[in-house]
Design a protein around this nucleic acid. Structure first.
Lengths: 207, 207
DNA sequence: TTAAATTTGTACCGATTGGTATATAAAATT
DNA sequence: AATTTTATATACCAATCGGTACAAATTTAA
């Protein structure tokens, strides 16, 4: 199932690649946020006109939704793949170091689209704001469940609180996203991640 | 030195209180961010007309600057007063518990204006975005200097890295601000703060 | 070769954006 | 009482917002 409309076999063919155009839109939303991005910004970056944008993606809001879906599937996305690590420590390590690397990767905008895409907005953007809140929550819930599994498997000690730990790691990741927009240098961000990892290992690792 | 223009003794007197109006503006900016707030939002909340707003505060950008100055001076501001605690641990404790309390205080909008006021924006808002980045940085620098003093006084162990610790606490505070906009419940946010404090005490406290 | 289907570019829509000109109202000063 | 000074309310400004109508262009199917 593709995230974009598929081209039919009749009628004039599209002059642009929808995946490429969506990637360009993602890049703009990432830098400017949902409401900070205008349709002019989008059509210029995507190299298409407004009617083409609306025909291919619906409207600005639906385009943004498709952009965040692409965002979570892009090669450097680190969150959900981290859950598949073998141990709780390795999961957290993959997340924190992945964040420390990806959030300041200069091949794309700094920070996290899910955090900075619509942290605050006007009434018109409340639906998008809530969508991003839900995405952040979903991530923490998934981490919580992974840590609960680790506890069940004896991979985390009995005194560990999976929900609290997931909130803690989630808070750190969101804070690191803000640091990335601040322009923190990659080395410093990685040092912060490593400090958290040391804490986690000392307090919860069984090795 | 007041943050607002003082009323002269000649001419028609102002029909509104500038401090009250500024407090109303702060409340709106806090909820909607700089660019998510329109002049109509502001004038309605402040109970004044646009010419009065411009005469008293300059323009939208200058009004926002005055709002963040008021924000940092309001009674529940916790950051800078925390620096005056006696020990490094008490400083960090005051910050984290103050944040856990203030960020979700229901007597005002959730989260932190300095974080969510303009995390992303259009070209028109870049100056405000940078202003907020600088404010965040200033806070971390001040904390770093306080922790360095603590180290000099023997209040922090020799292996402690003030800059890294300040970045770590700053990252947590910024993450907690995002959690607050997520709608996290006060108890959970406090638990996260306490987990960080436990870590800090275990790793760096000399008591 | 014609008809049907689809995309393209242009030009436009009403609504809203931040900001201001202007005339009137209300005060202190002379 | 007349003048000066400032604040008020209304009405307006050009520019931009997200979104669309429409006709020309380009393709496949009949």
């Amino acid at each position: 199932m593709s995230t974009v409309t598929q081209t039919p076999c009749v009628g004039r063919p599209r002059a642009f690649d929808t995946e490429d155009a969506l990637a360009k839109a993602l890049e703009v939303f990432w830098r400017k946020g949902f409401e900070g991005t205008s349709l002019t910004d989008l059509t210029q970056a995507m190299g298409i006109n407004k009617p083409s944008l609306y025909a291919a993606f619906g409207n600005k809001e639906q385009l943004f939704i498709k952009a965040i879906e692409l965002y979570e599937q892009r090669p450097c996305a680190f969150f959900y793949p981290s859950l598949e690590q073998e141990t709780a420590y390795q999961v957290v390590e993959a997340m924190l170091l992945g964040a420390a690397s990806s959030l300041v990767d200069e091949s794309h905008p700094q920070g996290c689209l899910i955090v900075q895409g619509a942290l605050t907005c006007s009434e018109a953007g409340q639906a998008i704001k809530q969508t991003l809140i839900n995405r952040r929550r979903d991530g923490e819930i998934a981490l919580c469940e992974r840590l609960q599994r680790a506890k069940d498997e004896g991979d985390l000690p009995a005194h560990a609180d999976p929900l609290l730990l997931a909130r803690y790691i989630g808070t750190m990741l969101q804070g690191m996203a803000v640091q990335a927009t601040n322009g923190i240098c990659p080395k410093e961000l990685r040092s912060v991640a490593e400090l958290v990892l040391t804490h986690f290992r000392d307090a919860f690792s069984k090795n």
